[in-house]
């Protein structure tokens, strides 16, 4: 077993035993070795179920607003951004959290892995070996460089502020690679429009992306389904879908950390992270704001400053 995992379990058991928290949220094994699953450890024995590896792609911050009691949460450093956003928006109390940062070497994007291997179900014994993912498919050995199957953002991982965490396990050791561009460099508004109109032909507007998103917590009040102001129509079609996704993209702008939860929840595998990273870049450029940096600063699209108006006019 990885040393990291031992430490992780020890920490969880310790917190539970001392009664510092009532539960530890982490990752555990699922039916597929290529997919971790969220684990909610309530007793120190359950801590032995915790694992950490490159298949722990789920952003656990999504669960935090559900709990009123003090809980501990394992988080990849980038996902601390989700917690910071939730703190900044008053959805969580810092006193109720014990945040454990786990050094991460990038997490596998199950969608990429599926595209590369055909079917996650047939991947036997999927595991991480150094900077490779190894598995067997129909008796055939598969070996894929981590850089080819991790989430886009993992290739552009930056150092993080250790002070934010109550506990840090492991040493920063992130991947560095140049992502293969998924869109042409000169992609302009027209290109994007064409791209999304094509992608959104598949959208069934089931709203799974929204429900899975840690930043989308409006639930019954979501404006996309408001009965009074019909922002989006009932008809199926790329125009209506675009309206919904654009609406959502603006609402999570400056709050989305590109964890990919929306994309993974999409039954039609629409590459939604592309949309959100595009908007995220714009927010960063326009407002010099990086998601999750400060828990005391609300996201820029939720505030209004006069100089922003003047800057736009100039």
């Amino acid at each position: 077993m990885e040393k990291l995992e031992v430490k992780l379990r020890e920490k969880a058991a310790e917190l539970l035993e001392k009664g510092e928290v009532s539960m530890v949220i982490g990752w555990g094994e699922s039916w597929s070795p290529a997919k971790a699953t969220p684990v909610f450890a309530r007793g120190k024995d359950a801590a032995s179920k915790l694992v950490f590896n490159s298949f722990c792609f789920n952003n656990l911050a999504v669960y935090l607003p559900r709990f009123a009691e003090r809980v501990a949460i394992f988080t990849k450093p980038c996902e601390a951004g989700s917690i910071v956003s939730l703190l900044a928006e008053g959805k969580l109390s810092r006193d109720n959290l014990h945040i454990i940062g786990v050094a991460c070497r990038g997490v596998v994007d199950p969608i990429k892995l599926k595209t590369r291997t055909g079917n996650l179900e047939e991947l036997a014994g999927a595991r991480v070996e150094g900077d490779f993912i190894a598995a067997k498919k129909n008796e055939e050995e598969i070996r894929l460089p981590l850089t080819e199957v991790v989430l886009e953002k993992c290739l552009n991982c930056s150092d993080y502020d250790e002070n934010f965490f109550d506990t840090v396990i492991g040493k920063a050791n992130h991947l560095q690679a140049t992502p293969t561009p998924r869109v042409p460099e000169d992609a302009d508004a027209a290109w994007w429009r064409k791209f999304w109109m094509k992608e959104f032909e598949r959208c069934t507007r089931c709203y799974a992306c929204r429900e899975a998103c840690p930043a989308c917590y409006c639930r019954d009040s979501c404006s996309a389904q408001s009965h009074r102001e019909k922002w989006t129509g009932t008809k199926q079609g790329p125009e209506e879908a675009l309206m919904f996704h654009a609406l959502r993209a603006m609402h999570v702008a400056g709050r989305c950390i590109e964890c990919g939860a929306c994309e993974r929840a999409c039954p039609m595998s629409i590459p939604l992270t592309l949309l959100h990273s595009q908007v995220g870049k714009a927010v960063e450029k326009l407002f010099s704001f990086r998601v999750g940096e400060r828990a005391d600063a609300p996201p820029p699209l939720q505030t209004f400053k006069r100089e922003e108006l003047e800057r736009d006019a100039s």
């Binding site: 909610f40 999504v62 069934t204 709203y207 429900e211 039954p267």
Partner: peptide, 28 residues
């Protein structure tokens, strides 16, 4: 409650389920 711990309630399962059939009636 334990069973639902990890469930995001995203509804993806219902959309991909071959037998789920709940529906809504909506005007446009």
């Amino acid at each position: 409650k334990r069973l639902a711990d990890k469930c995001l309630s995203c509804g993806m399962c219902t959309f991909l389920c071959p037998t789920c059939h709940c529906y809504e009636i909506k005007d446009e």
